[in-house]
Simulated scan of single mutants.
Amino acid sequence: MKTILRYGFNISLIAFVFSALLSSCNLGENEGREESVWVYLPSKPESLNAVLSSDANSSTIQNYLYQTLQVIDDNDFSMNPVLLIENPKTTILTKGPYSGGMVMEMRIREEAAWDNGTPITAHDVDYTYRMIKNPFSETLHKRPYFEDLDSIWIDPYDPKHFKFYCKKQYILAESSLTTQHILPRYRYDPDDLLGPYSVTDLNANGAKHLEEGNEDL
């Protein structure tokens, strides 16, 4: 019994001394600063632009910089909304210019905002895909995944409500179109240089713009 008490006393004494030493430590110039976490990457990322880069190291960092409309659950491969309030509502079209294709209707969360406090809207989504389809952007590695996305409709009364119109039905439409990192238009295109060029226009006339050397793009 005495041995147990002595052992317990020694542990208590050590704990007291240790806590006293910690409390007396002088943090110096680091006092009050937030702690940092260092993550090792085997090589330098190609780019932090989520549209232009294609390497794994860049993607690792971009996952912490930008959000996607949805993410794929690693456990059951289901689609889980991130920026969206719910999964897209997909409708097969049988009439109109996109007959035989499909439309995906979505809405961005009200609380979704950029680092400067401005709301994330469908205009940011639209800009991201126009950037991908811009023939002067180095995005050839991404365009095949979005070639059937032909038009983006934005609700004039609710900029968080939008639709994707696709020329064809394809099984990877939702996973491809909703897992792209969304770029802040206010930062990448503050002068709205891509404004005059819609996704539809860039699909139809991208080669022409490239041939003419359109400097506005």
Rank of each mutant, 00 (worst) to 15 (best):
N87R: 00
S176Y: 14
K168C: 05
T121A: 10
S53K: 04
I132P: 00
Y98P: 05
S175H: 06
T178Q: 06
K95I: 12
P88L: 07
V103M: 08
L172E: 11
D74M: 13
C166S: 00
Y66V: 06
P88N: 05
Y157C: 12
R107A: 07
D126G: 03
M131I: 02
T179F: 03
S176Q: 15
P135K: 02
I154V: 15
S151I: 07
I171P: 01
I92W: 10
W153H: 02
L69F: 03
T68H: 08
P144K: 02
I154D: 06
P81N: 04
L69D: 00
M106D: 04
D76C: 09
P119F: 13
Y64C: 09
W114R: 11
K142E: 09
E86M: 01
T90N: 03
K95T: 15
K163H: 01
P81Y: 03
T60C: 05
K167S: 15
S176D: 15
E174W: 02
T179W: 03
S99K: 13
S175V: 15
D73L: 06
S59I: 01
T118L: 15
V125Y: 11
P144Q: 06
P81M: 04
P156A: 12
Y145K: 14
N57Y: 03
T178W: 05
E111V: 14
Y157M: 13
P144D: 04
S176M: 13
M79T: 08
E174C: 10
E111L: 12
K167Y: 03
T118K: 15
K167C: 06
Q169D: 00
T91E: 14
Y157G: 12
S53A: 14
S54K: 13
R107F: 03
S53T: 09
Q70N: 14
K160A: 05
C166N: 02
A56W: 06
L83A: 11
N57E: 12
H161R: 10
V125A: 12
V82K: 05
T94Y: 09
N80F: 01
T121I: 09
Y127C: 06
F77C: 11
K133Y: 13
V82M: 09
R130D: 02
I154E: 03
S78P: 11
H141T: 00
L140K: 14
M131C: 11
D115A: 15
A112R: 06
M106T: 07
Y165I: 14
Y98D: 07
N63D: 10
L172N: 12
S54N: 11
N87T: 01
H141G: 04
P81C: 04
K160G: 08
D76T: 10
F162Y: 07
T91N: 08
M106Q: 09
K163W: 06
T90A: 02
P88F: 03
C166F: 01
Y145A: 11
S54R: 12
L177I: 07
Y64S: 12
A113C: 06
E105C: 12
Q70I: 06
R130Q: 10
D158T: 05
E138L: 08
N63F: 01
H123E: 05
S151Q: 14
P135N: 01
L65W: 00
F164V: 07
T121R: 12
N87E: 01
F146T: 13
S151N: 12
D148E: 11
I85L: 10
I108D: 03
V125F: 10
H161I: 00
Y145E: 09
T178Y: 05
